[in-house]
């Protein structure tokens, strides 16, 4: 997929665990794992907003476009 999710990088920068982020934004760890592994087909604005708020970052820090 051409859109990469750099959630791992952001979590590592902030020394945060996946389950902590999942707890903060109110989604299951299974869904966060789907998002991290790039298996998700879409991301809701509300989820993106919650991630950006928790990690104090911009959407561009999480999402990256890489041409195929």
């Amino acid at each position: 997929m051409a859109i990469l999710i750099n959630l791992d990088v952001q979590l590592e920068k902030r020394q945060m665990k996946s389950y902590e982020l999942a707890d903060h934004i109110g989604i299951t760890t299974a869904n966060l794992s789907i998002l991290k592994t790039g298996k998700a087909r879409a991301i809701r604005f509300s989820t993106l907003e919650a991630i950006c708020k928790t990690l104090d970052c911009q959407p561009a820090d999480i999402l990256e476009y890489v041409p195929d």
């Binding site: 869904n31 298996k39 879409a42 991301i43 989820t47």
Partner: peptide, 8 residues
């Protein structure tokens, strides 16, 4: 349905 299920 799959799209909906894989929307996070």
């Amino acid at each position: 349905q799959q799209d909906s299920e894989l929307s996070i």
